[in-house]
Design a binder for these strands. Structure first.
Length: 756
DNA sequence: CGTGGCATAGTTTTT
DNA sequence: CTATGCCACG
């Protein structure tokens, strides 16, 4: 396994430790994906593990895709059998096979946040609760929290004794689950919850998957919630080969139920755990990393570790404060233009999606191509949801929500009163909404609307017939697969045309309608590529794939564009040049976290800041505005406390009325007096080696003039004693105990140590 | 039954 | 400020 030579000792250790529980604490940019992929390779090629028995879990499809690709490249045979998947798609696959044990049908549909909201609204209405007092939002978050904690309806009710409000919430929870079940639907949290449920209820199914997944790896472990933890723990219980990779400093999803305790207590939970820390960062310049460390070390309750790098110092971190928020946006955009590098090298990050607007406007006015991640998800757009609801109705008439959404879109003259009658009839007869539609003629008092409803039903039936013909035909005939005759794209086109949906949009004639039609075209393209890429394309498979995509997943980096996104979306990504905008107290950290009684709320924000800083490879600029409009009011804010936490000497700062560190213009240079020998910072050429962090050119010396025990001097860390010298493949790796900075490891050629 | 106008609430972050 | 939702009128 020659590729092992390219790993550093710690990485190598992590790769070779294949048996038993393993916790890899991987700092930002320390090459964890590399370790994971090599570990898979090691399992298969060195340990003789059947690829079929390996499971790698990630949080996003994008991460899963990247890992899949790299495993395929690394492993010659059998890589395809390794199961690389997100938590959610793993669970969907399991549930599609075995959910009948829980009383659902295996063609269940998956509800997204919008669907949940609609359903919740109905539930609150049905229970005759005051919608002012019981908001969908807060009810949903209570239920979501419960599910993430694996608290089912009965247990929730038990816990709610004594608290009137909680008892009401228990009613809502129960009714909500009842509706979901009636619709044969699961929400996102259910996917995990029900899978754990399944494993607990049915020992055979659990055993089957325990046998199947003898080696389990989990990425971004710090962001797992209780349900996910339990899922993994159950699966790993039999063989105990569980390897988790994470960084407690990058835990940023507490609001979604992520429990940082899962990583902090891993060693206690899994006795005999081997812990390996990856502390060498290959991504960022020393200045960027120092800034990140300076910020994060203000947090308590973290695993002690210090990220270090052998990379160049790089330019100072820049901080710019502007007057108005639009001036901030303007400043960022002009800075981007002034650097004259590829647009794809830049990312502008912010705390809240609302901030994207100003940046977008400036990009448009300066004609800068940009890619917006997040905000309104493609699949949440009205027209896309409409079409998808047609498809859902065709696939599974039991999804009442979907049917109700489209029954009068486009206008068929079926109004709220008719729909009310259908719902009532369905309730009386114990039918689904759609079944009730089928019987429209027998519903009392329906009148003229009955014919219209029947028209709708026969249209759906017609589509369903065509789809069935395609799905059956496809299995016998390869040509069907590639949309040669009909297929999914054809079905969507027919829906748009035959229902009059397209006509209705065209009739509007507005700019917006045109954009909608284009979006539908994009959906058709998506369907076409699904049909070609998928082994066994079918309608349900398509709906499933579509319901599990996040926005980052769709981020294609082939085009040369500036990336705009939230700090949360940026996790796991890296860019040569990063802007952290809106560095204002009250915005980042958010006022919620500042007001909060719980001091760990601020710590979560700080971790978010740490994530943001460590996305940058070469150049980091933080910006803030003194004034910003929110809810129609101008707010004045102070500079974010996180900025203040960065030592002054690391920052090139400009703010109205204040100057420090002799402003050094766009191409930062840095002051000799502070850092000793100035180094020429040369940004590596854009689009370098894909995937793994940038490394600056290293020339290995033939031999070193110093050895263990010698006193040496370093440009930045001062004097120290050499602890060890390891002759690595590419360079000597030297560990030095500095008098003032503690132990640091570094590459000899980069560190340029001077023997005393 | 559909539309247009007005009132109100809302901002964290998302698989 | 903006998006959504509700109500009243045609």
């Amino acid at each position: 396994m020659e590729m092992i030579d390219t790993l550093n000792p710690k990485q190598r250790e992590a790769v070779l430790h294949t048996e038993g529980p393993l916790l890899i604490l991987a700092g930002a940019g320390s090459g964890k994906t590399r370790v994971l992929t090599h570990r898979v390779a090691c399992l298969i090629e060195e340990r003789g593990v059947n690829p079929w028995n390996i499971l790698a879990i990630t949080f996003t499809n994008k991460a899963a895709g990247e890992m899949r690709e790299r495993v395929d490249r690394l492993v010659k045979a059998g890589a395809g059998s390794v199961w690389v998947s997100t938590f959610h798609s793993l669970c969907v696959r399991i549930l599609r096979r075995f959910i009948e044990y829980l009383g659902y049908e295996n063609n269940f549909t998956i509800y997204d946040a919008d669907d949940q909201k609609m359903l919740m609204k109905q539930v609150i209405k049905n229970l005759n609760l005051d919608p002012k007092q019981y908001r969908e939002r807060s009810m949903m978050s209570i239920i979501s929290k419960a599910k993430n904690e694996l608290i089912g309806t009965e247990e929730f009710r038990k816990n709610s004794q004594g608290d009137w409000n909680l008892r009401k919430a228990a009613d809502v929870y129960e009714a909500y689950q009842g509706e979901l079940k009636k619709n044969n639907a699961l929400d996102f949290d259910d996917l995990i919850f029900k899978t754990v449920d399944l494993f607990r209820v049915n020992g055979e199914v659990l055993d089957y998957y325990q046998e199947r997944f003898r080696y389990i790896m989990v990425d971004e472990y710090q962001d797992t919630n209780t349900a996910q933890f339990e899922l993994i723990a159950l699966l790993a219980r039999k063989y105990g080969n569980l390897c988790v990779v994470g960084d407690d400093d990058q835990s940023i999803y507490k609001f979604r139920g992520a429990d940082i305790g899962n990583i902090l207590n891993f060693e206690e939970t899994f006795p005999g755990t081997k812990v390996i820390k990856l502390e060498q960062n290959y991504r960022s310049t020393a200045h960027i990393l120092d800034a990140a460390n300076a910020v994060i070390c203000n947090n308590r309750g973290r695993k002690q570790k210090t990220l270090w790098t052998a990379n160049e110092e790089g330019p100072l971190v820049m901080f710019r404060q502007y007057g108005q928020a639009f001036e901030e946006a303007e400043g960022v955009i002009q800075d981007i233009l002034a650097q004259g590098r590829s647009y794809r090298d830049f990312a502008v990050l912010y705390r809240t999606n609302a901030q994207s607007r100003l940046m977008e406007e400036k990009c448009i006015s300066y004609n800068i191509p940009y890619r917006l991640v997040g905000g309104v998800n493609f699949y949440q757009r009205k027209e896309i949801k409409d079409i998808l609801c047609y498809l859902k109705t065709i696939a599974n008439g039991r999804d009442d929500l979907a049917v109700q959404r489209i029954i009068n879109v486009p206008k068929r003259g079926i109004g709220t009163s008719s729909i009310g009658k259908i719902v009532a009839w369905a309730g009386e007869q114990g039918l689904s909404f759609y079944q009730s539609c089928v019987q429209a003629a027998s519903i009392p008092g329906m009148g003229k609307a009955a014919g219209k409803i029947q028209g709708f039903v026969s249209q759906i039936e017609d589509f369903a017939r065509r789809n069935q013909a395609w799905e059956l035909g496809m299995q016998e005939d390869e040509a069907f697969k590639t949309n040669g005759r009909y297929g999914l794209p054809g079905l969507i086109r027919d829906i748009v045309e035959e229902t009059g949906y397209g006509k209705e949009l065209e009739a509007e004639g507005e700019e917006e309608a045109k954009a909608r039609l284009e979006n539908i075209d994009e959906l058709i393209n998506k369907a076409a590529s699904y049909c070609t890429d998928s082994e066994n394309p079918n309608l349900n498979g398509f709906l499933e794939e579509v319901s599990l995509v996040a926005d980052v997943d769709r981020m294609d980096d082939s085009e040369d564009r500036v990336t705009l996104m939230t700090l949360h979306s940026a996790k796991g990504l890296e860019f040569p040049v990063v802007y952290l905008s809106g560095m204002e107290d009250g915005l980042f950290p958010s006022s919620m976290s500042i007001m909060s009684e719980d001091p760990t709320d601020i710590e979560e924000e700080r971790r978010l800041c740490y994530v943001g800083i460590t996305r940058a490879r070469e150049r980091l600029t933080m910006t803030a505005a003194q004034m910003r409009m929110t809810k129609g009011e101008t707010h004045y804010s102070k500079v974010s406390r996180f900025v203040e936490e960065i030592p002054q000497e690391l920052v090139d700062l400009i703010r109205p009325g204040v100057r420090a560190n002799a402003y050094a213009s766009q191409t930062a240079k840095y002051t000799e007096k502070q850092f000793g020998t100035p180094k020429q910072f040369k940004p590596a050429a854009g689009g370098g080696t894909p995937g793994f962090g940038r490394e600056f050119t290293i020339k290995k010396a033939a031999a070193l003039e110093y050895g263990a025990g010698d006193r040496v001097r370093h440009g930045r860390f001062g004097e120290g004693t050499v602890q060890s010298v390891v002759d690595g493949a590419r360079d000597f790796e030297v560990a030095v105990e500095f008098d003032r900075y503690g132990v640091k490891k570094m590459f000899a050629s980069v560190a340029k140590l001077e023997k005393l």
